[in-house]
Amino acid sequence: MADFVTVDEVVKKLNLTVKSGIDFINRKVKVSDISRPGLELTGYFDFYPADRIQILGRTEISYIKSISHLNRMAVFEEMCEAETPAFLVTRDLEVPPELMAVATSNGIPVISSSIATSQVSSMLEQFLSDQLAKRVSIHGVFVEIYGLGVLITGESGIGKSETALELLKRGHLLIADDRVEIHQMNQNSLIGEPPEILRHLLEIRGLGIIDVMSLFGVGAVRDRADINFKVELVNWDNNNRYDRIGTQFKKDEILGIEVPRVTVPIRVGRDIPGIIEAAAMNYRSKLMGFDAAKTFDNNLNQLIAKNSKIDQENESEEQRQKDHAAAKPLNKDTNDQDHA
């Protein structure tokens, strides 16, 4: 996780213009949230988020023009605190000269954008969230199978890269091999991508490093994807009881977010890429409401109920026959008495 992003990086990423304070362009941005000052422009600063980039759009600039020069100077002096990263004016609006003067005297850059406030706000938040998000590096292979981001893990040498190679040949996409950089997109999703030095590369023991994009084309790689599903490869152990029904996925926690996981045991003769394909399709079908394990469970319950009903009927018939047999001697005695 990066501790900060510089204003210069923001300017380059969003193609912004520096209006003043070019000497302070390396000022640090440490939070991903942004601020559009409203009450602050009227002089209310009790809850002013000074550590955020301050965005001024058409509404804010219009209000600033309506107040006096002295009030503008007083407001901007209050807004220019030690931790304030920068001021961003949108829509190529004219920057108030008081803002540039006060910001420059406090060592804060003023930057501008030609696009609408909502658009630049969304782009800026997305960039800052991406750069400042929590990150972790995991040993594994990350591929996209039928639109699902599948993280393949397992001990070194178990065959993760070879499995990825076969999946590529079947038309799926490689995102990362060996190391997967994972960062938290929001409270419910994770993004996986390769380290820059390993981008589009795949290592096969005995063959070496191959360039996937050169061999399979640009349609065989992706730079990043959501992590939807995890497959753990393990060596086959005859003493281990592996899941044979799959009524529910186990879950692993990455950066505080639960990721569904299946464990696939490796042994000679098993089509591991095909099994992983099936696991991905099965997971997708569960997301769509079709669960083979539940279908099997329902069928089993129906069969048990049916057999139980048959058993009850057989028991009833057997009991009826016993009752009938027990009643016959009684009828014979009654007839003998009648003849006498």
Rank of each mutant, 00 (worst) to 15 (best):
A292N: 11
L39E: 07
D252I: 08
I111L: 10
I310F: 10
K12L: 08
I197W: 01
F4M: 06
I209W: 04
N335Q: 14
W236D: 00
D291V: 07
R270G: 00
A220Y: 10
H139N: 11
G289F: 12
D291K: 04
I158S: 02
K309L: 15
E81Q: 13
N228Q: 09
T104Q: 01
A278S: 14
D3G: 12
F4Y: 11
N186A: 06
L300W: 09
I64Y: 03
T263H: 03
I55E: 00
A103S: 14
S214N: 11
N307T: 15
P96C: 13
I22P: 06
R222G: 15
S129N: 05
A74L: 08
N235D: 02
R199K: 15
S114C: 03
K65L: 07
S316D: 09
V75G: 03
F142E: 14
S121P: 02
L16S: 03
M123T: 10
A103G: 09
M213G: 03
E40Y: 07
Y242D: 01
D333P: 04
Q302F: 08
I115A: 05
F249R: 06
V141R: 00
S156H: 03
V150Y: 02
P97R: 10
S35Y: 15
D223A: 10
R270M: 02
T247S: 07
D223G: 08
A133T: 02
F4K: 07
R170S: 00
Y48K: 13
D211I: 08
R320Y: 09
S308N: 13
D336A: 14
L202Q: 01
S308H: 14
T84K: 13
M100L: 10
Q54T: 14
L201I: 03
N239V: 00
L14P: 03
I34L: 11
I209E: 02
E196G: 06
E40L: 11
D46Y: 05
K332W: 13
H324D: 12
V29L: 02
I138D: 12
P96L: 15
I304T: 10
D92H: 09
A325N: 13
L39F: 12
K160L: 13
N307L: 13
V180T: 15
V95C: 03
D291P: 05
A82C: 02
G149E: 09
A278D: 03
K169V: 03
R320C: 03
V264F: 10
I275L: 07
L39Y: 14
H183V: 04
H172F: 12
V141E: 05
H139S: 08
P96A: 12
S285K: 10
A292K: 11
V18N: 11
